[in-house]
């Protein structure tokens, strides 16, 4: 039972990190990108390639995987967001990010192969059951990430610009903020964070090309339950989702994970549409 809880917490941490990545992109562009989960997939696949295939040490492999994620984040912004977001509010960004997500998934599938491959161990540690590194790495990382983002938003000039843009991008632009450049920056940051998240959880998810869609979905469920735009909500939602789905699949069998996740989402949206930590949106008239 302990191992079930710890697994749930670790997987939930991955979902929570996906929620944080959603939030970083959402803050500057009001876009929920379908590529979110694929960032983690890239981190895991490239991490496995750099460290397992090419035999690089971790101090080289981790920054390199993060750089791949950051580059893909920038690419997403340039290709799928920049031109689309200036158009009317027809939600074209949903289609363009879906297209980019599909392309990256298939490209990785063609290049890397469609079988999941093992991810190398990151820290020298003997296999230790519930205290193994594949469980505590994501849990520690999500706390670091949430705390780091909190500090970034509150203490740095750049972070305050992010907050300003999330409040009102138009007003921020009027105050002389280069909104296009800030948005690109947020996509780079989110790409790096997503790739690091995938890198740290690689030993749980394996280096598998198709894991992205599931993470996009589950990260979104975590965020919707916790409250869109709230980092605290992403943490709580992610952990709740991870633990509930793990405990439930322990009792009912692992085949029903998605069913449980979406059931949780529907329940949460029925009871509290704006999420636990979300703020109520004004009606769009």
């Amino acid at each position: 039972m302990l191992i079930v809880l710890v697994t749930g917490l670790a997987i939930g941490s991955l979902y929570a990190m996906m929620g944080l990545v959603y939030n970083v992109m959402y803050s500057t562009s009001k876009v929920l990108s379908m590529t979110t989960g694929h960032l983690a997939m890239l981190g895991a696949v490239f991490g496995a390639w750099f460290m397992g295939g090419l035999g690089w040490p971790i101090w080289l492999g981790l920054p390199a995987a993060a750089a791949v994620g950051a580059a893909f984040g920038l690419l997403t912004d340039v290709v799928a967001i920049r031109r689309v977001i200036t158009r009317s509010n027809e939600h074209l960004w949903l289609l363009s990010t879906l297209a980019v997500a599909t392309m990256v998934q298939q490209a990785v599938g063609l290049w890397w192969g469609t079988e999941p491959r093992p991810f190398p161990r990151l820290v020298p540690q003997d296999p230790a059951g519930a205290l193994d590194q594949k469980y505590w790495l994501p849990i520690v990382l999500v706390l670091l990430m949430a705390a780091g983002l909190g500090l970034f938003y509150r203490k740095t000039m750049f972070g305050k610009v992010f907050v300003a843009m999330s409040e009102d991008a138009f007003a921020a632009r009027a105050r002389g903020i280069a909104t296009n450049r800030v948005r690109a920056m947020s996509y780079v940051i989110s790409g790096a964070l997503g790739a690091v998240a995938g890198f740290a959880t690689g030993q749980l998810t394996y280096a598998f090309f198709a894991v992205g869609t599931l993470l996009t979905l589950n990260g979104f469920v975590a965020l919707a339950v916790g409250g869109l735009g709230s980092n605290m909500g992403a943490l709580v939602g992610g952990w709740a989702l991870g633990i509930i789905s793990m405990v439930a699949s322990h009792y009912f069998g692992g085949e029903y994970q998605q069913t449980i996740a979406i059931g949780l989402l529907m329940l949460a949206l029925l009871v509290r549409p704006q999420g636990i930590f979300g703020t109520r949106q004004v009606r769009a008239v």
Partner: peptide, 17 residues
């Protein structure tokens, strides 16, 4: 056929843009 879904994604992106 080999590219398969990649090709759909590319078409979708081109059309949207």
């Amino acid at each position: 056929a080999k590219l398969g879904t990649f090709f759909y994604g590319l078409l979708l992106l081109l059309v949207v843009l």
